[in-house]
């Protein structure tokens, strides 16, 4: 006899199975990430049709199976129809879903992650189209924070010196390094770059034999593209000031210019890709959606 269990979960990914079924990857409050089959969900008259859509929150009754669990009952508690109204919102939602898929755990409660994701999807859904990128960047930072890997932006990751951006000085700059764990002073960044050059020269001169014993920064050359963040990134005072606000629960400056949000999103993307060791594929469409020429469009 099969065992059944109840869960409240949000659908994050759907793949087709057989003639009419769908396999759902669901983030549940009670059991973390689960995969379950929605039988007949692709049939025209199926009650599971709408309920198996992405970003739909259901109260589920699931039967445990040998290989895959099976959804036997579902009642929709929440859906985000507003996400589907514009390409920007839809892309942002998929980006967050992919990020959560990278960080969520299976077989253990993920209540905080579940609520955080729902909160940010709701904010993106309700936001004005020009603020979507700001809300997305805020959500990425918050998701990284809940995973315990948010970048350190108030102190230099290497020297622990306090970073106070001077927004009145247009030439003020700091460094950002995913390998170091976040923001660094310019001096520390230059020191890192010098070390990189030295170590990569040693790698070349020894035919790569040092690779296994190198410091993480020098391993960049051998890493796949998503694991090789540029070591010489700099951020200006406004970007760092906004970065430092992202840890707050509420977004204080969503109307700040979109190039700043675009720059921060790219930094966080590189950072997340480095930490989760896999590319965020949805991000490719973000570049298309939020390119300057498209950002003016409705």
């Amino acid at each position: 006899m099969s065992r059944t269990y109840k869960a409240i979960g949000i659908n994050l990914k759907a793949t087709l199975l057989g003639e009419a079924d769908r396999v759902l990857t669901i983030l549940t409050k009670e059991h973390g990430l689960i995969r379950a089959v929605a039988m007949g969900a692709r049939k025209q008259n199926s009650k599971m049709g709408g309920r198996s859509g992405l970003f739909v929150v259901n109260n589920l009754l699931i039967a445990q199976g040998k290989t895959l669990d099976k959804i036997t009952q579902a009642e929709t508690l929440e859906s985000y129809p507003g996400l589907g109204r514009t390409l920007k919102k839809l892309t942002a939602g998929q980006y967050l879903a992919e990020l959560v898929l990278n960080q969520a755990l299976s077989e253990q409660p993920q209540e905080d992650l579940f609520y955080l994701l729902n909160e940010h999807l709701g904010r993106i859904e309700r936001s004005h189209d020009t603020h979507v990128l700001a809300h997305l960047t805020h959500a990425i930072f918050q998701l990284l924070a809940i995973a315990g890997v948010a970048p350190q932006v108030h102190q230099c990751c290497l020297t622990q010196a306090l970073l106070k951006p001077d927004v009145s000085d247009p030439h003020w700059q700091a460094g950002f390094s995913a390998i170091a764990g976040g923001a660094v002073t310019l001096e520390a960044l230059e020191h890192m770059q010098a070390q990189d050059l030295l170590l990569s020269a040693r790698v070349r001169s020894t035919g790569g034999e040092y690779r296994a014993t190198l410091a993480p920064t020098a391993a960049i050359a051998a890493a796949p593209p998503h694991r090789s963040p540029s070591p010489n990134m700099t951020i200006n005072a406004v970007e760092l000031a906004v970065f430092q606000q992202l840890a707050h629960a509420e977004l204080s400056q969503p109307s700040i210019s979109s190039p700043v949000w675009l720059a921060l999103e790219r930094l966080l993307r590189q950072y997340a890709q480095y930490y989760f060791d896999r590319p965020i594929r949805s991000a490719a469409l973000i570049d298309t959606c939020f390119a300057p020429e498209l950002s003016e469009s409705p």
Partner: peptide, 17 residues
Amino acid sequence: LPMGGDLEYADEVTLAR
């Protein structure tokens, strides 16, 4: 809603759309 389908059997998401 699909043709021939009863309103009471439609799921919440489809009905909202």
